[in-house]
């Protein structure tokens, strides 16, 4: 089977939709036309650039290049997790908690999939490694930022309760246990929902893309199932690690609740 190539004209036709929407926004005074156009332009440029980067990467298969690409991806994801927090940890922890847990979970899961499941050769074949890591990272990033946000908000809100528990001689683990459990649960909900709705409500993007590109549907489905499981694993373990690290950081060596290690919301 062959992929039908898209010409620039084809894309221009699709871009008319954006222009029409922007016109409507102007007409109805929605005030989003500027955002709409810049974000459309941004995604065009970003995607074209990444296309070029991937082309170069695929032509020069070398572990160092793949590792560099993966490193950049994880740093950007770590920053994204940080800026999404209402109350983030002050100093390196703000960036470190999310980034470290994504590194632990996403990398492990991706490498495991490449080595044990797909069995590409070489194992870091960028065609597989980069898209897989990207999908796992994107979802793990969501889970971790939801979980961390919930944990810090909850701890700030329930400070009197947590301190009462500490005053009764409970350990920090016991004192924060309710908030921690809730935060992990919140981080896991999106992927659980995505798995239960997959195929019925939504056709996952990856699978759709493969089918459009000519892959037989059943093969595409198998890959999608694999990716779902990898995402669930990456998100789940990543969130558990991140929330665990963050909970630990909320207490000092004398097991005092240290909300002063968080920034104020909005700053």
């Amino acid at each position: 089977m062959h992929v039908i190539n898209l010409s620039p004209l084809d894309l221009a036709i699709a871009a008319l939709l954006i222009l029409a929407l922007a016109g409507l926004s102007l007409r109805l005074r929605l005030g989003v036309e500027r955002q709409l156009l810049t974000s459309a332009a941004r995604s065009t440029i970003q995607l074209l650039l990444i296309g070029l980067v991937l082309k170069v990467l695929f032509d020069n298969v070398h572990l160092a290049w793949v590792a560099l690409m993966a490193g950049v991806m994880i740093l950007v994801a770590g920053r994204e997790v940080m800026v999404r927090q209402k109350r983030r940890f002050i100093g390196w922890w703000g960036f470190g908690v999310g980034t470290l847990s994504m590194f632990i979970s996403s990398f492990t899961v991706t490498v495991m999939a490449l080595l044990l499941v797909i069995g590409t050769s070489p194992w870091y074949a960028p065609q597989y490694a980069i898209p897989l890591l990207g999908m796992i990272l994107g979802n793990t990033m969501n889970g971790i930022s939801l979980g961390l946000d919930r944990l810090t908000q909850d701890a700030a809100q329930k400070r009197p309760i947590i301190e009462s528990r500490l005053a009764l001689g409970q350990s920090w683990q016991q004192s924060i246990s309710d908030s921690r459990r809730e935060a992990i649960r919140v981080g896991l909900i999106p992927i659980i929902n995505a798995m239960s709705a997959a195929g019925i409500v939504s056709l996952p993007g990856m699978m759709t893309g493969q089918i459009l590109a000519g892959t037989p549907p059943v093969e595409a489905v198998k890959y999608q199932i694999l990716v779902m499981f990898l995402i669930a694993g990456g998100t789940g373990f990543g969130t558990v690690v991140a929330v665990g690290l963050a909970a630990r950081r909320l207490f000092d060596e004398r097991q005092r609740l240290r909300l002063d290690r968080l920034s104020q919301p909005g700053k």
Partner: peptide, 15 residues
């Protein structure tokens, strides 16, 4: 710390 707080127990003004 938990052992200390068990022996020297604070009862806060608000429960």
């Amino acid at each position: 710390a938990p052992d200390w707080r068990r022996s020297v127990a604070l009862v806060a003004a608000e429960s």
